[in-house]
């Protein structure tokens, strides 16, 4: 009787061990799946942040281009768009922006505007290169022009 009970116990133990092994195998497959899924989540989050930043950069660049086409001056443009006049050195202006494209000393996005002037007899053709970058990789770049005639008025596009 006792022997029967011991044998029954051993059989139960074997079943439990089989269950263990099956569960471990299942856990192994699920852990691989979880690793892949978590990577997908991380990449999706990163891509969404990158596309949002690009979209805001495009809108900001368009605003800068529109304002520059009216006044043809980089300092006036930055004052108009960002509310504060930026420092211009040799026709280059660098502004640090936050993720909402607002000037911030702690911002991680860099806006570099490079201005060139071509003086002609009829007026001045100014060109402005607008470039947004983050962590030394370019997000978006745009080139725009403004023609200020000699009588002081901006030319129609």
């Amino acid at each position: 009787m006792i022997l029967l009970k011991i044998l029954k116990g051993k059989a139960e133990l074997k079943q439990a061990n089989l269950f263990f092994i099956e569960l471990l195998v299942v856990l192994l497959f699920f852990s691989f799946s979880i690793a892949v899924i978590l990577k997908i989540f991380a990449v999706a989050d990163y891509k969404q942040n990158a596309s949002t930043l690009t979209e805001k950069s495009i809108i900001c660049a368009q605003s800068i281009a529109e304002v520059f086409s009216v006044n043809g001056d980089i300092a006036d443009t930055s004052a108009f768009v960002f509310g504060e006049e930026a420092e211009v050195t040799d026709g280059v202006c660098c502004i640090m922006l936050d993720d909402d494209m607002k000037p911030s000393a702690d911002g991680k996005n860099e806006l570099i505007m490079t201005e060139k002037h071509d003086e002609t007899s009829a007026g001045v053709l100014s060109s402005l290169n607008i470039a947004f970058s983050r962590n030394e990789s370019e997000i978006y770049a745009l080139e725009c022009y403004a023609y200020i005639s000699s009588d002081g008025g901006a030319a129609d596009e």
Binding site: K5, L13, F19, L23, L24, L27
Partner: peptide, 20 residues
């Protein structure tokens, strides 16, 4: 021996449940 078997059985079940 019976007691040990019973304890072992219980421990196995608890360990399986913990893993799950």
């Amino acid at each position: 021996i019976l007691n040990n078997t019973r304890v072992t059985g219980v421990l196995n079940t608890v360990a399986s449940l913990l893993l799950f």
